[in-house]
Nucleic acid binder design. Structure first.
Length: 665
DNA sequence: TTTTCTATCAGCAAC
DNA sequence: TGATAGAAAA
């Protein structure tokens, strides 16, 4: 008898969980128990005797992958050593580490994130003699990305950057590095050119699942399609497609039906998450979209409380409002801080709200934005590790060669670069050539500096690559390079900042420690660690730290999550829909609406929305209008709190007191 | 030649 | 507000 509690599934869910053979398309509305269906389905496969090694589940975020794995582990009580649950990108890395040598890279290649990529574009562009205004790396970066993911081609794009693109590509190869888009693109290339490699994967994976299918790009679809035989289950919801700017293409659903004949479609339409009020609001909004599959999402959770819309004077009043609400709900409804999610459209909006939290002493975590791993001090340390593991990684070498300051400045680097360019070699090789050259153009002093840098890296390499205890060794390395002294010196005038950065590094080392002591982790080497962290952009390093804290994040980052109480802050025209999306055409407005829909449907019990009347933008204060989407919420579900005009402090306190009263009843 | 200081510019979403 | 490029100072 199966130990799985199938009786807790509804009829449709049950169908999805027990249909293991053949292609299926699961249309899963918001809150319809999608994650549950996927985890039960995997557990069911395992119970039916399908070996772990044959199962491949692809997700969008690390968070989702991790959560899925944990839930399957709970359900089955098994060790999951051979089960592959990973993000598309992590799966790509896995393939490339195995076989990238066939494409001319070495298997210890570095993975460049956007910052690294833009840096490389800038360097390459300068060499090619682009002027500063033609070298908008942000734009060029996204152009290149769009080319790589197959959204644009050179016919339609701006040709003047074509040469730069080619140089950029050969730069990557020279430095033994790949960028994020390559993590999907190169495996496809590998499969095309070396069918025997593809066959390995086709032989292994017999059951494939894809989560958030509406957000997969054409390339990701192709990667999946290359491996898949016919037992493929894709799960998605076209109303929650919010990544078209990253190449998501909901026409993949049509392609899927074409490429896999006999698709069985299963619709999950019962929402288990939200109150009827919240769901009706969401449905009211999304029904304004023309381009969608019609759906009848319903909830049996009772009508619940009305949605409240506030119009604070400015962003700091908004922050105060959110803080007050959270604190009064903690008392009146015995909520804990972990019950709240505060959602925003753009990372720049976090500041005011964070300040509010700090002032009110409310514990919180921010995810997305300048994530932990994007912080300068963390990137520096990671750059050391990357150069230690891959000497030819020029971008990371440049980052650290003079950090902390070693007196190796622009002129010296130019000379190194010159040699590298002439010899078509990496900077590392070029430095070594300079050191051992008899007649060198460099001053002796510089030679000594460079030599000690090279020796330090080489020494660290032999230390870090052998044996156990990575965390300890990293700490020793940080000491060896005197990084802490460097911080103190650089931030003399701002001791707080220095202390903060100091702590971040401690944090990093602790996280390495927990990582290597995790019993589920069999490879605790440096490569494995670097492998893992390049793909983590959100701070899902410590799960337990999330408990008891208010979550502050972008709407994009909130996908797949839920909170008992949700605040949507900054619901203003120009933010949602974002001003940029209006410039680009009306398809984008529909995506903005879907984004707003995703935000609403994160809420279980109660939803607050706020739209400021004025907001600081850059240096000046701008008048704001509420988002037009607010009018699309049926009026009977909403309590509007109109602005009172200028409110004196006394009055504000009174209003607060009465609000608190209302919630203590 | 390298470091430090000052002025200027620009800001959507993420693996 | 932060990052970055160019100018002045060491």
């Amino acid at each position: 008898m199966s130990s799985l509690a199938f009786n807790t599934l509804n009829e449709k869910q049950h169908e999805a969980v027990t249909t293991l053979e053949g292609p299926i398309l699961i249309i899963a509305g918001a809150g319809s128990g999608k994650t549950r269906v996927i985890t039960y389905r995997i557990a069911n496969m395992l119970e039916s005797g399908i070996p772990q090694s044959q199962i491949l589940a692809l997700t969008f975020t690390n968070k989702a992958a991790k959560e899925m794995e944990e839930r399957v582990k709970e359900l089955t009580g098994k060790k999951l050593q051979n089960l592959t649950i990973s993000t598309f990108h992590a799966f790509g890395v896995k393939i490339l580490r195995q076989d990238i040598e066939m494409l001319g890279w070495r298997s210890n290649f570095s993975i460049y994130d956007d910052v690294d990529r833009n840096q490389l574009i800038k360097e390459t562009g300068r060499e090619l003699g682009f002027t500063a205004d033609a070298l908008d790396v942000y734009k060029i970066g996204s152009l290149f990305s769009n080319i790589k993911i197959g959204r644009w081609d050179w016919e339609s794009a701006n040709d003047q950057y074509r040469k730069l693109y080619e140089e950029y590509q050969s730069g990557l190869k020279l430095y033994n590095a790949v960028d994020f888009d390559d993590l999907i693109g190169l495996p496809i290339k590998l499969f095309r050119e070396f069918p025997e490699v593809l066959q390995k994967y086709r032989d292994r994976y017999k059951y494939i699942m894809v989560d958030e299918f509406q957000d997969t790009s054409i390339q990701q679809y192709l990667l999946m399609h290359a491996i898949a035989d016919r037992n493929v289950a894709v799960v998605g919801d076209d109303d929650q497609s919010i990544y078209s700017w990253r190449g998501a293409n909901y026409e993949n659903i049509l392609m899927f039906e074409r490429d896999f004949p006999g698709v069985r479609e299963i619709r999950l339409e019962q929402n288990y998450r939200s109150t009827e009020t919240i769901l009706a609001a969401a449905n009211g909004v999304i029904s304004n979209n023309t381009n969608r599959k019609d759906k009848a999402l319903w909830s049996g959770n009772g009508s619940g409380k009305p949605i409240e819309i506030f119009m604070p004077e400015n962003e700091s009043a908004e922050a105060d409002f959110i803080c007050e609400m959270i604190q009064s709900l903690c008392i009146s409804e015995k909520r804990s801080y972990g019950d709240f999610g505060v959602l925003i459209r753009a990372n720049t909006l976090t500041r005011a709200i964070e300040e509010g939290f700090l002032q009110a002493n409310i514990p919180y975590t921010v995810s997305g934005g300048t994530s932990f791993f994007q912080r300068k001090e963390i990137k520096d340390i990671i750059s050391y590790l990357r150069v230690i593991s891959n000497h030819d990684d020029d971008i990371n070498l440049l980052r650290i060669i003079n950090t902390p300051r070693r007196g190796i400045g622009r002129k010296t680097i130019e000379q190194i670069n010159e040699i590298a360019k002439n010899q078509k070699c990496s900077l590392w090789t070029s430095i070594n050539a300079l050191i051992s050259a008899q007649e060198s153009p460099l001053a002796d002093k510089m030679k000594i500096e460079l030599e000690s840098f090279v020796n330090m890296i080489t020494e660290q390499r032999s230390l870090l690559l052998g044996g156990k205890g990575l965390a300890k060794k990293v700490r020793a390395m940080v000491d060896t390079v005197n990084y802490m002294d460097y911080l103190m010196q650089e931030y003399q005038k701002n001791e707080k900042a220095a202390r903060f950065k100091f702590l971040n590094i401690e944090h990093l080392i602790t996280s390495i420690d927990t990582w290597e002591n995790n019993p589920d982790n069999f490879d605790t080497g440096l490569y494995a660690y670097l492998n893992r962290i390049t793909l983590i952009s959100r701070d899902d390093m410590e799960d337990d730290s999330l408990k008891g804290k208010v979550s502050l994040m972008t709407i994009h980052a909130s996908k797949g999550l839920e909170f008992p109480v949700v605040f949507i802050a900054g619901a203003e025209e120009g933010l949602i829909p974002h001003a940029r999306s209006l410039e680009e055409g009306d398809g984008n407005v529909e995506e903005e609406r879907r984004l707003f829909y995703v935000a609403i449907t994160r809420a279980r019990d109660k939803l607050f929305i706020s739209a400021c009347r004025k907001r600081r933008k850059m240096q000046n204060v701008v008048d704001c209008t509420p988002s037009p989407f607010l009018d699309e919420i049926p009026a009977n579900l909403v309590e509007y709190h109109e602005p009172q005009g200028e409110v004196s402090d006394d009055m504000a306190l009174n209003i607060l007191a009465s609000m608190k009263n209302k919630f203590t009843m």
